[in-house]
Design a protein around this nucleic acid. Structure first.
Lengths: 339, 339
DNA sequence: TTGAAAGCGCTAACAG
DNA sequence: CTGTTAGCGCTTTCAA
């Protein structure tokens, strides 16, 4: 089946390609007679013509493409979605984008290829970066002259929009909640605490709560690994080996909280009787466990919608830098007990 | 920052754009002097030139773009990833594609816009469709002359490649397993059984197992709704109201199995003592519940890799239709007891 | 071993 | 109200 182009339409309708283009783009400056318009529309339908956006972008300078980068668990590994958080987020990003006539170019971070290169390759209209990456790969994006939205990172950059939550406050809420319920020995279970990532802030919140209560930080309470179910399970074992000195744990991601619950159960320990747990994110997951997970809620869908909206706004000329901090709150479920 | 094009490179290197193009594409037919090549490469580096793939696609007929369609729970709704299955699948698709120099154009099915239109718009090189859709939207894809891979659907089409598992066999395995353990009243919990979707086949497998054992189908054992955690929870309640006549349930998705477990627990019933459950998919999720879920395992990662590989092969000229059926097996965990 | 020129599909001054 | 023309960035004959 031959590719049919605007030329074919023009020929069919007996007009020039220019006129077809005008009609198709509803140029307000141009005014085409109703009759011609109709003839062209008919030709379009008859030939089942669909414009080639790549060609269009060549002249029009816009692609209606938004690039999205989602992290992977390990560099070069495939399973970037092991944590359902990203699925939930991507879902709303895709939906919002599509509702506004944009498509998504999805990619994981690639050690072999800078994302700025991909973005230029495809000349995307905007970029949404989820998670924290080496500073270098972020500043590279300066070369592009398209709006960039950084989701969930504390990288400071005067040019890029950001959207996130108050992670430190979240850490504080979670830990304080445990302290208020009588807990003193509180584990901090988390992926690695990277420089500008969210976990660092959540850790600071953890500290804030300890300080507030006059408790000292005990380094033995820190369990740092990867943001994965398996790691959290192994933490349960490690706690056991160390004599189960904690009565509570703050897990900086629900997936970690889930792993802890499971790990404890496998060791014959009860939640929350033997260990109280607070998670973070409030994924669908949090309701699935038994007991269900008390956790810090954030509005993932809103994050996604916002990210896209910022790009759309920027395309409309709203160039001033935006910094959104979405509200969070603690959701009480069943994984914490008062002692 | 100005867009820098092949022209700029040519000027910088003191050659024609043709030569630059040759060097960049390592045309074997063309042979460029080492010296010139070096000069050009230097210019590329100096100017930080990145080719514009959209422009390239105009002449070269390939975009190195693969279109991916992932279903949504409800038409026009956003949360296509409510079921982590899709996240896991998409993850490997993205990874495999990227490793092979392809990018992903991600989209949900849109009632307002046929996917074939999007695909033509962007002139993707191949299409991966996950899940089952109305026949119409699939046959529309005939207009395109690019390889199409249908994942997890039983739509018969002589032109499209398919990849899936033996869902009927899966349903059989699951149900037979329960029967072998003494269960006679086995609920079938599932999303709606659509014409060419996987659940229909899984249902047939369920029936096969019943027949095999000389058991009659009891329509009261059928709980059909949506593939969601919440629906499965409500099924638990419905079972209760009907007097808990089932001793076991076959849930056609792990997420449903999870919901059942939770729903039962909330009603004070025990798994597997009061109800044995077998799921389907073997998501990460299946290990997270307590008890962990006995389920029909399928290799999701392999599905993703295969889907991409079929496209790559097709691009290489392997046009014969491919039909892959990936192996499955039952994974025994803790959610089933012998009675 | 290299370059001129045409063309991919589309848009946008500028004329008419 | 419509068409001519040039050009977006790139590839590819064809000729030199």
């Amino acid at each position: 089946m031959k590719h049919i182009s605007i030329k074919d339409v023009a020929k069919e309708a007996g007009v020039s390609t220019t006129t077809v283009s005008y009609v198709l783009n509803r140029k307000l400056s141009q005014t085409i007679s109703a009759e011609t318009t109709e003839r062209i529309l008919q030709a379009v339908r008859k030939l089942n013509y669909v414009p080639n956006l790549n060609a269009r972008s060549l002249t029009s300078q816009r692609t209606n493409l938004i690039g999205v980068v989602i992290p992977q668990t390990e560099p070069g590994k495939e399973f970037m979605f092991a944590n359902p958080f990203y699925g939930e987020l991507l879902s709303t990003i895709e939906y919002t984008a599509r509702r506004n006539g944009y498509h998504l170019l999805l990619s994981g971070p690639d050690p072999d290829q800078s994302y700025s290169q991909i973005a230029r390759n495809r000349s995307v209209d905007g970029i949404i970066i989820v998670g924290s990456y080496p500073n270098r790969s972020i500043t590279e994006l300066h070369q592009l002259s398209v709006p960039v939205v950084l989701v969930d990172t504390y990288i400071k950059d005067p040019l890029f929009h950001t959207i996130g939550i108050d992670d430190r406050e979240g850490g504080l809420l979670a830990t304080r909640y445990l302290i208020e319920r009588g807990h003193r020995e509180i584990a901090f279970v988390s992926g690695s605490v990277s420089e500008q990532g969210v976990t660092q802030k959540r850790f600071m919140g953890y500290m804030d709560a300890l300080n507030e209560a006059g408790l000292a930080l005990n380094e033995k309470r820190l369990y740092l690994g990867t943001v994965s179910f398996d790691f959290a399970q192994s933490v349960a074992e490690e706690m056991q080996q160390r004599g189960n000195q904690e009565t509570a744990a703050f897990a900086t991601a629900d997936i970690l909280g889930m792993g802890l619950i499971k790990g404890m159960r496998r060791l014959g320990r009860r939640i929350p009787e033997d260990l109280s747990i607070v998670g973070f994110d409030d994924l669908d997951l949090a309701c699935m466990s038994d007991p269900s997970l008390t956790t810090v809620h954030q509005d993932i869908a809103e994050k996604g919608r916002n990210a896209v909206q910022i790009i759309l706004d920027a395309m409309e000329g709203h160039t001033e830098k935006q910094e959104h901090i979405l509200p969070i709150r603690l959701v009480e479920r069943e994984s914490v007990r008062r002692i």
